[in-house]
Amino acid sequence: MQPEKKSRGGRPWSFDRDQAVETAMRLFWRSGYEGVSIGDLTKAIGIAPPSLYSAFGSKEGLYREAIDRYEERYGSIELDFGENPSLADAMRTLLEGAVRSVTHPDREGGCMVSSGMIACHPDHAPLAHDAAARRDALRGRIGTALHPFLDEDTAQRLARHLSAIMQGISIQARDGATPTELQGIVDDVVDGVAARFPA
């Protein structure tokens, strides 16, 4: 691995920092923050603990970079509903995009944000609060996207409902649910909302 930027002490790192973040992201995505040790990280990245601490400050620092990487690359949701969609069309686009994201064969199962840091040791509360804030921000974006179809209060209420569905889809995907099985959830949710809010 070739050196990239310099460490905090001014010496060049003897590893690819970008690849280290990518590797850590995959480990944290697969096993959760508390399921990955410093030893797991250093072994997978191919560095000694002092190099990890020099580059990232701590395991927490590396996790924060890893989850930022995840959101940048995999955390977006489909909010382009096309021309003149119905509310049901918009919801189907959103939920089917979520299913594809959490069951993609080249990725880890589930969503790193939706199912991350749900429960943790009190020492890791700041990371749990950060994960909750990321989920809340996503819910807000969904509510904004639904506002053209509904009044603001109803859009935000439906966004909370859909966020809960998406979290459940993420967890079931981690447990091995297939895209076909998860599609059944999408169909039922869309049918229910279409009946409540007929076009």
Rank of each mutant, 00 (worst) to 15 (best):
S163V: 01
R134C: 05
A48Y: 09
Y63Q: 10
E72P: 00
L27Q: 13
T103D: 01
Y53L: 15
I47D: 10
D106V: 00
R157C: 07
Y74G: 00
R17Y: 03
D106T: 11
G39S: 13
H104A: 15
Q156M: 13
H121D: 15
R30A: 15
M91V: 11
I118Q: 09
S76L: 05
E96R: 15
E96A: 05
D68M: 05
I185L: 10
P179F: 13
L138I: 00
E181K: 06
G32Y: 02
A159T: 04
H161L: 14
E181D: 10
V189W: 00
A195N: 09
S58E: 12
P179Q: 11
M1N: 12
D106Y: 04
H104F: 02
V36M: 14
G168A: 07
A125H: 12
P50C: 12
F28I: 03
G39Q: 12
H147D: 05
M1K: 10
L52M: 15
S163K: 05
A88R: 05
T42C: 15
A20Y: 02
D188H: 06
G39L: 04
A145T: 03
E78V: 03
S115V: 02
G143S: 07
A24K: 08
P198D: 08
A132R: 14
H161V: 14
P148Y: 10
S37H: 08
K59V: 07
D175N: 08
G97V: 00
A20I: 04
P122D: 08
R69G: 06
R196V: 09
I38K: 07
C120Y: 02
D136N: 11
I67R: 15
E22K: 10
G61F: 05
D106F: 01
Q2A: 09
T144N: 08
P126S: 14
V102C: 00
G116R: 05
P122W: 06
P148S: 10
V186I: 04
V99Y: 03
E72M: 12
E34A: 05
G9E: 06
E22G: 06
H104W: 01
Q19M: 08
M91Q: 11
A55F: 02
T154P: 00
R174Y: 03
K5L: 12
T154S: 13
Q183R: 14
Y53A: 09
D80S: 08
L162R: 07
A155M: 01
L41W: 00
R174K: 12
I38H: 08
H121G: 08
R69K: 11
G57W: 13
D106H: 06
A119D: 10
S76D: 05
K6W: 07
P50G: 09
Y70G: 03
E152V: 12
V99Q: 01
